Simulated assay, not measured.
Amino acid sequence: MPTALITGASGGIGAAFAIELAQRQHNLILVARSEAKLQQLAAQLQQEFNILVEIIVQDLTAPGATTAVFDAVVKKGWTVDLLVNNAGCGDYGAFADRPLAKQVGMVQLNIVALVELSHLFLSGMRERKSGSIINVASIAAFQPMPYLSIYAATKAFVLSFSEALWAENKDLGIRVLALCPGPTESDFFKAAEFPASLASSSGQKLVPADEVVRDALKALEKNQSNVVTGGFPNPLIVNMPRFMPRELVVNSIAKLFRR
């Protein structure tokens, strides 16, 4: 039975990955800060699907966090066949007006922790010549986004990094996918302090997290390097900037997201 490790597993896309993979008879290692939520999810999945579920309560922005997660997995003797780097956060507002510590923490979680976990677990996958990594990016990865500047920049890194890993490892039997969802049913907008008026005025329907997960796993099976989920207009959003002056794109987004 394969084993999947999922970060940010206590809710949203991470919890949806846990449920879907449990249905597909994967053992799970669930990582997040919220012990109560992880315990509740683990108990539910073990009882319903008769799988093994391990939880690791860890703040991935803390010093040495990723090494602690890796060491815990090694100590338990588990082999990770699928790594889902889902943990991430956003923050709405003009960069200069937002707390610096929150911006740096976003880089630490969205980029540094993802890179470290990818490196730690990819080495074993290369030795076994099998394994998969899903890195959760965003449709925000495809263009700069004023008022979500650090978030979009971190997701652009995730997209570029994941596609490079895909090319480096595909001939070794290892699949790497950048998952780029649009607006999804989760706590993202609340945690990012996104104004409700802007969220509602975008006109985009929030896509259920389980739908995003199923589309991601289909793309992984096809060994795609990236997938944009959520249906129309997301493919339009990610491709239109390629044919427009960059200044026009950035100015348009600034007007859209300004309070």
Rank of each mutant, 00 (worst) to 15 (best):
N223C: 05
S149R: 05
V80D: 03
A199I: 03
L82C: 06
P233F: 02
V213Y: 09
M125K: 13
N135E: 04
L236P: 08
A152F: 11
S252R: 11
I174V: 15
D97K: 08
F121H: 04
N86A: 01
V107W: 05
S197M: 10
Q23V: 07
I174C: 09
A9H: 02
Q224F: 10
Q40I: 15
E168D: 14
F121E: 02
R128E: 06
N239D: 09
V228T: 00
A156K: 08
A219R: 03
L100W: 10
F121R: 03
A153I: 09
Q47R: 12
G14H: 05
P99D: 12
N239Q: 08
S149T: 13
V115M: 08
A22N: 00
G231C: 06
R242N: 05
L120W: 03
E185H: 09
R126W: 12
L236D: 08
I19A: 04
V112D: 12
L41N: 11
A96W: 06
V107A: 13
V238A: 04
T79M: 11
I19M: 01
N226P: 05
I139A: 00
N239L: 14
A9Q: 06
K170S: 12
L83A: 02
I29S: 04
E116G: 04
N85C: 09
T7K: 06
S138Y: 07
Q39F: 08
A68G: 10
M244R: 01
A216I: 06
N135S: 08
V115G: 00
L41D: 10
A192G: 08
I174Y: 10
R242I: 06
D171R: 07
D59S: 01
L248V: 00
G173S: 09
L256P: 05
K205I: 07
V80I: 14
D215A: 15
F157S: 14
L172A: 15
N135W: 09
A22G: 12
E185Y: 01
Q46E: 13
G203W: 01
E48I: 03
Q44H: 14
L38H: 03
D97W: 09
I253N: 11
M125W: 15
E163Y: 08
S162F: 13
S160D: 10
W166T: 02
Q47W: 09
R242S: 09
A9V: 03
K102C: 07
K218D: 13
R242Y: 14
A140F: 14
L148T: 14
